[in-house]
Design a protein around this nucleic acid. Sequence first.
DNA 1: TATTGTTATACTCTATAACTATA
DNA 2: TATAGTTATAGAGTATAACAATA
Lengths: 186, 186
Amino acid sequence: MQDSVADRSAIVVNDDFEDEFPDARRATTLCAANLLRTANRLLAEIDRRRRTVADLSASASEILAIVEGAGEPLPPHVIADRLLITSGTMTSLLDTLERRGLIRRVTHPTDRRKILIDISDEARSILDRMLPRIHGASRDVFAVLSDTECTTLVELLERVQTRLQALAQEATPEGDERRRRPGDRG
Amino acid sequence: MQDSVADRSAIVVNDDFEDEFPDARRATTLCAANLLRTANRLLAEIDRRRRTVADLSASASEILAIVEGAGEPLPPHVIADRLLITSGTMTSLLDTLERRGLIRRVTHPTDRRKILIDISDEARSILDRMLPRIHGASRDVFAVLSDTECTTLVELLERVQTRLQALAQEATPEGDERRRRPGDRG
DNA sequence: TATTGTTATACTCTATAACTATA
DNA sequence: TATAGTTATAGAGTATAACAATA
């Protein structure tokens, strides 16, 4: 098996933070750390519920959900584009799903280079039980927020996302050197 | 290599959502989807900047950061506990880091079962350049939020985290069956 | 030539189980 | 017996590169 969604933030907030990084707004690092930690825990909760239905990875589940959502068989590269994975990875994921009898590779009627991915009845049955649980997780988790607070959260997150998309297109900026504390080893 | 942090939410929000899941507060699913998406993109941005300094995975970087943050060599199981990984996984990560000359296994002075992990000068040098970039990413990203908004975001996220911790200890709840739309296949 | 998908290869992260050495 | 760490094995997910078939 795998998964256990480690609660790691890739960010370390030391007590010496202000000394070491005098320029940084400490609040921004707290934002980042909390965002990553919360997302990890949410993912773990969703994963936990998903696996009560079937032992499928997130990627595998999403392939099924995408095909089912489309309402018709889809060619692999369409699914791969949505998942942002390469064609080689896609083939490997499809192999796993086919081995388990959850998808079928169907020949494309007109373009013989292509194939179409269709999902089996068992896959549909799994999705029928899995999707409500995933949505149920969101419902249970965010029950602690009022409607207004949900809206606020979504609005803030959307602005952060917009910013992230802009940054992703810029060149990677230089980092200031860290100021070593006196007595630090090295 | 690996990494590219796919922008996947594990959640599909269809237009037919309300029909299919009449009980669900749609807002909660939007919260979850946005939270996961934002976190993925933030992780990608941090990763992008981290890799301009050294081609290290998140886990590998964190091992170095944890040891450096402690200010002294640490036994593997202490680091593994923080990262929530097993001892076998820890050994493998340490092997990789040692092969690259970033850590050393030092014998424990009193307990000969134990070893201590120390980081090399090169690792320190990497951290000196890497940590500011990671914090710089947070700073640049959350510059779109005011101080007040940062505080609000952190507060909301903390409440969600508290909720998630409580849920993680409960038994997995049953999911309602999804209501199939007329004309749906299957 | 370009597109679609597969194969081959390799690497990281992860887990479990059996094992060794030490306490 | 319990603890610390390693080894062996396995598997998922990912990537790249070379390839075949088709358009």
